[in-house]
Structure formats: C-alpha cells, structure tokens
Amino acid sequence: MSLSVSAVDDLPSDAAQRPLVRAAGLVKEFRRVKRVSGRLGGLRTLFSRDYDVIRAVNDVSFDIHSGELVGYLGPNGAGKSTTIKMLTGILTPTAGAVSVADRDPSRERKANALNIGVVFGQRSQLWWDLPLRESFRAVRDLYGVPTMEGDRRQHELVKLLDMDEFLDAPVRQLSLGQRMRGDIAAAMLYQPRLLYLDEPTVGLDVVAKQRIREFIAHVNAERGTTVVLTTHDLEDVEQLCRRIVLIDHGRVLYDGALTELMARYAPYRDLVVTLASPADVAVNGAEQIGRDGPVVTLRFRSDRVKAPEIIGAVTAAHEVVDLSVAEPRLEAVIGRIYTQRGLPESPA
C-alpha cells in the first residue's frame, strides 16, 4: 500500500522533470535544384536530378522545460526558423527527433496544435480580408474553445495588448505593430502551454516593442507559458531571457544562462573618464581602448580588479572632470561571436 502511494507520488515530479520540448540530433537538409543554363535551360532545370544539398540545421540538441523563456539566437541564415518549423511540425526532420509534450509534432500534428501557439513575425497567420474580431472567432471555433472561456480570454488579451481600437478593421488595413499584436493574441486564445515567437518585434517602434516584451514576460510569469523566442533585437533578449541557445551554420555554439555567457566572454567593464586636459592614460590593470579628445575609455577585467582601484589610480594621475562605468553590452559579445563565426577562444 505504502509502496503504491510513493509510486504515485513520484509520477508528477517525474513528469515535471521531463522536458516539454526535446530536440535530439536534429538535422534538416534542403535540396536546391541546380539551374541548368543554355538552350531550354528552364525546361531542363525542371527535369534535372542535379541538386545541391543545404544543411540548414546540423545536429542540434536541447531540452526546454516547462515554464522556461529561452532565446533562440543566431545570425541570418543560421537555421533558427528552420529549427522552429521542425519543433512546430511544419517540417519533418531529415534526421534526429523532436518531441513536444511527449509527441512527435510532425506525426501527431492535430494533437500537438492544441499545445502550441506560433507567431512568425514575417508572415501573418490571420485571415487577410477579415476584421480582426472575425479572425479571433474563427480561431476559437476551429480549436473548439468554449464560448464563455473564449470570451473571457479574448477580453483579457484585448486589454493586455490594447487592441480595442482596431478590433473591427480588416487585417489587411492594420499597421505592422497592430497586426503583430493580433497575431500574438490569436496564438494565445486557446491557451497553449508553449509559445514559439519567431521575430515578434521585427520592424516595430520602441513603444510597440516594449508592449510586446511586457506581454511575453506576463504570460511567462503569470500563466507559466513556456516561450521560445527568436529575435535579432538583443534588447528583447536582455529584458526577457535567462537562457539562450546560440546557433550558427545549423550548429549550437552556446546553450546556457545569459549571465554566464557575459561572465565568460565579456568579464570586463569600461571606465569612461573626461579629463581636464587631453592626455593618454596608463594605469595598472586597465587598458586604454579609445580616446576622443579629453574623453578616454579604459577597459579592465572586473573579475581581477575592482572599479574603485582603477578610478583611484586614474584620479591620482590626472585631473578628472567626469567619469562613468559601463557594463559590457550583449550586442558586443554576440557581434564578436557572429563575426568570428564561432565562440571567442578567450575573453577580450
């Protein structure tokens, strides 16, 4: 008796530990037919068996647990959207396996559809000619959301995303930011456990971006919705993601905490001082990395020396008018990784 009780007790915790999303050795190859040139080139291309193989995703593995908010990052063409399409079941992997809530998305598409919400910033999923309100109704009906429940959720979403004004406008007349909010709301109407957002802030102004970030943070914190976010706006990442998965050329370069990435690859601070009279500054433990008239930028390893020590050394040697300490920007770190097309060997 006590045995069976403990067995039952074990189940939920076991289920909780099992990842919501598991990608194991994912590979996706696209075939691109080689163009045949010359006489009747177009026609011969049509029947050509000659093609290039593009490996857009090359052995990608990761686990995502319920409640996480993960940034999936990488330069253009890295394979982010292709991965997301395999996770959502749009594409079938060439090799490897995906499971979402213990289901294979491309095989159990219908069952999986209820678990996931998907927004592609570049491509709307709403009905172009219908008023937003009608699109919402269609989504609710197709998913079979009970009327009362649907009304409640829609009301809440309209309030959260401030959509009252344009609810009756046809989608084709909406601005990009309005359409994006509509798309996000449509993906949340049936309360999926998992939300994939592929560039949800692309092309939006600062205020619109901020509203969407707040919404993402809200659904993750309040409803426990797991979020996988792809974006080129690192502000999104800094504000939202604790964990990032960084890929390039279809391979995972980094998978871990954002703070860890920064500590590992940018363990420095910049001290910017404005001197009374222009001069080069040389102090122990810091390196001058820039000078613009009287404004000098010094970089020091924050894990080796303390800011006050450097400040002390500078003020002892020069008359300082103004100073500030700057944290390294994620942008700088990611930028270096992208240009080197790999992780830096050592910190800067």
């Binding site: 209820l114 197709l142 009970p146």
Partner: peptide, 21 residues
C-alpha cells in the same frame, strides 16, 4: 482549463472555414 478545448469534427471545421471564406 485547456482540457475543455476540443476541436470540432472535420465537417464542422469545413463549415466554419466556408463561413470565413
């Protein structure tokens, strides 16, 4: 809550989509 959400039959969905179309 999510348990309440259950898609209708294919025929019903076809009718919904025709309405939308």
């Amino acid at each position: 809550m999510a348990e309440l959400t259950k898609p209708p039959s294919a025929m019903r969905q076809y009718a919904i989509l025709l309405r939308v179309g």
